[in-house]
Design a protein around this nucleic acid. Structure first.
Length: 137
DNA sequence: GCCAACGTTGGC
DNA sequence: GCCAACGTTGGC
């Protein structure tokens, strides 16, 4: 099983909307690296749900429930998407600030590649962040 | 609101 | 195939 992190601007699609919808297709990604990361996702993989711009913190956990398929909102046919299902809110949201302050997380893509919206998370990083979030899967 | 980082586009 | 111009993301 693999772990990921997905970003969403709360003004565009917030965690509270994700909770309400329970399940959401992750359309609208128009970046090859992000799209390729989604292509690698398997059903059952987990992802942190991160609020970019406003909030700048990990607020929840989702899991992949449908693997990569074409993004119908992309008329060029180049990009795909997966479907996520809400798993749970984290007990303590983990801020970008606290992630940056943790030396064990200094290689995380969230820090190194700030514009990437879908990224892999290493097993160890996943565990550390879960601990910071005071949350268990 | 600014700007750094980075991706894309299009002229040559 | 290079690179200037331009657009977008997202932290600050």
């Amino acid at each position: 099983m693999a772990f990921w992190l997905i970003k969403s601007e709360p003004l565009a699609y917030s965690w509270s909307e994700m909770i309400k919808d329970r399940r959401a297709p992750w359309d609208g990604v128009r970046n090859y690296q992000a799209s390729n990361n989604m292509r690698s996702m398997k059903c059952g993989d987990y992802a942190f749900f991160y609020h970019s711009n406003k909030g700048m913190e990990i607020v929840g956990i989702v899991k992949v429930v449908k693997e990569y398929y074409p993004d119908h909102t992309d008329t060029s046919g180049r990009f795909g998407m997966v479907d996520f299902q809400k798993v749970k809110s984290v007990k303590n949201p983990v801020s970008l600030k606290s992630i940056k302050a943790n030396p064990a997380l200094s290689n995380i893509a969230l820090v190194r590649q700030s514009r990437l919206s879908v990224m892999p998370i290493r097993d160890r990083e996943w565990e550390i962040i879960l601990e910071m979030a005071d949350t268990q899967l």
